[in-house]
Amino acid sequence: MDKVVACQTCGLVQGVDDVPEGCVAKCARCNFQIFHRRISSRSRTLAYSIAAAILYFPSNFYPLVTAFYQGQHTQTTIFQGIRSLWHDGQYFISGLVFCTSIFTPALKIIGLIFITLTLDWNGGKKARTWIYKIIRIIDPWNMLEVFLLAIGVGVIEMGQVATIHPGRGVFSFAAVVVLTLLATLSFDSRLLWDSPAERKHYQ
């Protein structure tokens, strides 16, 4: 079936033939990809979410920062940081850090993997749409931790008294944040409501 589509990049109206599986249509003028819906939304979301799930473990298990303070050498994992904040009586910040760095990433990853794997189910479409909605709501809060860290490192690196080096955990953590973000962005919520034939075409 022949369709007439306008290129999203340069606006050229052109005819697009049926696109076979594993292929994409490219604009006759600007050579950018022409798509009606996000391309391979399902597998991209799944791939990003699985990668995030894998890196979730090192990001929590390994020290986020290695600090040399007055000759002492301390390594802090996210969880140790939360615990010491709690013991210092900083219940609000401790709770905030726990939510943004341990709880919500886990929620997002599990939620995304769940809805991408259960797309073919018939029932509970509304519930699954709600899961996606919640994921979109908590999304921006995930970035908070990275900002906190950036500020903290910037402040402490100033003096010679203490030096802070990023630990293994921080790279994994940043990767988890980026990957969950990409996963949410590449998920097309229309997939939830597509008919099986449409879904086969668009996923």
Binding site: K26, C27, N31, L179
Partner: peptide, 27 residues
């Protein structure tokens, strides 16, 4: 009368799975 869009193979779908593989590699 309209120009025709080109059809090209897309490898993105396969490349995307390199990301979890890289995550496993890092671990």
């Amino acid at each position: 009368a309209l120009p025709k869009a080109k059809i090209a193979r897309s490898y993105l779908t396969w490349f995307i799975w390199l990301i979890p593989v890289a995550a496993v590699g890092l671990c």
